[in-house]
Amino acid sequence: MENQLSMEQVFQKLGDLKQFFIFGQKIVPLFKKIIDFMTDIVPLLENVNNSIQDTTSKMPKAAHQINSVTNATEIATSEILDIVDSMSMDMTKIKNELEDMKNGFLNQRVALDKLINEYPSLNGRLEELKSALVIDELESKVVGLENVIQKIENDITNITISLQVQDITAQQLASVNHLIDSVQKRLSSLLFDFNKQDGLQIPHFEEIHEHKKPFNPNAKYDRNHDMQKVADELINGNNKTSQEEIDKLFGK
């Protein structure tokens, strides 16, 4: 009886062993796959590490180049503004000259009318002279030129408005530089930890020493002036801003 019980236990153990081998047959290919994966992934991780090191080392140069772009556009904008100023001054001169010409035409007309009244016998000759002087025609040409100058002045104003894009893009670029700075710090920290754990040499990266221009991260070039409309509504009290909203904003 006792022997029969022992044999049952042996068979049960053999059954467990059989299950273990069946499980082993299933799990071995999985282990093999994991080992293959690790064999593949290690060089890949090395590559990622090298790539991050390479990218991180290039970031100060990228930040510097972005600042160079900002400086170059500022210089170029200043040069355009010089030209715009010069054009504005020229337009003012031309406007004054045209005004003088209009006054001259008026004076000529008045003088001729006066002569016509004073010397009726010369009336026909004076009318001929008046006609030959084509005062009306010249005057309308002057008015035409004044309209052209008005258009040029409007164009100059529009150029000035458009040049404000330089300040807006400078802030957008400063925002990008800030992001690059943050990413570089994060990557440097990751590489520091990674290399330290593996006993590798800890890479040293050049810090981004670019001039930190204050910026508005939401700066955008909005020629529809939608944001101005919001500002006007708030200032004129037409915008429904609850006291609760204001208190929340100012942390009361």
Binding site: Q164, V165, D167, I168, N216, N218, Q228, L234, I246, L249
Partner: peptide
């Protein structure tokens, strides 16, 4: 360039008399 509602409210709270969002005419 700051045109968000909360920016404008903050400026008004600081007692600016008026507010222009770039680009302006």
């Amino acid at each position: 360039t700051r045109g968000l509602k909360e920016d404008i409210l903050e400026a008004l709270q600081a007692k600016v008399n008026n507010y222009i969002v770039k680009p302006f005419t």
